[in-house]
């Protein structure tokens, strides 16, 4: 079954269904939430056992996390090959500047003639490297569904309304302290086809650059207290609970703007070796 034949592209469904039926049999039934939740619990138990046996708690999801069905054929089986070359091009990376952003990029509620529907929010935080140093002047990109849980993307067929006043794309450059700030609306949860009755918790997609290409990060920010967390194989692909919690923003009353928007704070730490450029804050 080709993903293009599905009425919705929110899936997942490219991976073969592991049902017992062979080719030509009746169409496989999608896994239930119960099936997926059991697989998640088993994967978490395996990860916890590895930590109990002395492994470091993993910061990132494993690439072969079968409860997220699309991962099955899209991860390498061979080990990654280590590159230790201090001259590697990857220890530096692309740079961006004032020509790469415009003033309205950081306010997703002002990119159209009218105001989008939904709960207006401010999302702000700091981008640092593993040593706690700010990542300065780097590009932060976000994209998200609208308040109804619909993306402004042709392949999103979720029958929730599009909002003519909301695209859901933002960009900014971090300041000298590594801070970013966006005004947007709170995205809605949405269904997808990983399994029967699958729903993604509300989230904002983030893309970040560090001083080195090795620090590249694409991730998703979640909202505190979302009841969909335990059901979502994408969030739960991060097997370590402390690491999962780092994907959840905090409500920050000090960031709320009176009579305007509610504030969420989300700090981001980039993994990977940083460029060894002189840094005045080094060691401070």
């Amino acid at each position: 079954m080709s993903p293009a034949s599905l009425p919705s592209q929110r899936t997942g469904a490219a991976a073969p269904n592991p049902g017992p039926a062979g080719p030509g049999a009746t169409p496989p039934t999608p896994p239930t939430q119960q099936d997926i939740s059991a697989e998640i619990a088993a994967a978490h138990a395996r990860a916890a056992a590895a930590v109990a046996a002395g492994a470091a708690p993993p910061d990132h999801p494993p690439r072969d996390f079968a409860p997220y069905r699309s991962s099955v054929l899209r991860h390498p089986r061979q080990s990654l090959v280590s590159v230790g070359d201090p001259e590697a091009a990857e220890l530096r990376g692309p740079v961006f500047g004032v020509t790469d952003v415009t003033e309205t990029d950081a306010d997703l509620t002002r990119q159209h003639l009218g105001e989008p529907l939904g709960e207006r929010i401010t999302v702000s935080g700091r981008v640092t490297d593993r040593a706690g140093r700010p990542v300065r002047g780097q590009l932060v990109e976000i994209w998200q569904a609208n308040a109804s849980g619909r993306y402004a993307h042709q392949r999103d067929q979720h029958p929730a309304p599009l909002d003519p006043h909301f695209t859901g794309v933002g960009r900014c450059l971090t300041d000298d302290l590594g801070r970013y700030r966006f005004t947007t609306i709170k995205p809605g949860a949405y269904p997808w086809r990983n399994h029967d009755n699958a729903w993604r918790p509300a989230h904002i997609h983030f893309s970040l650059f560090g001083t080195a290409f090795t620090q590249r990060l694409v991730t998703q920010m979640y909202f505190p207290g979302d009841p969909l967390f335990p059901y979502d194989p994408i969030l739960q692909s991060v097997t370590d609970q402390a690491a999962r919690e780092r994907l959840v923003a905090a409500y920050d009353h000090a960031l709320s703007v009176p009579e305007w928007s509610l504030g969420y704070r989300w700090d981001i730490v980039l993994d990977g070796p940083a460029a060894t450029l002189p840094d005045p804050e080094e060691g401070s």
Binding site: V169, I234, L235
Partner: peptide, 19 residues
């Protein structure tokens, strides 16, 4: 030392945002 923010999939809908 702060721990890194975990990665998450880019998903299917980056097409109107990243290119």
């Amino acid at each position: 030392m702060p721990r890194p923010t975990p990665s998450q999939t880019v998903g299917p809908f980056y097409g109107y945002a990243l290119p």
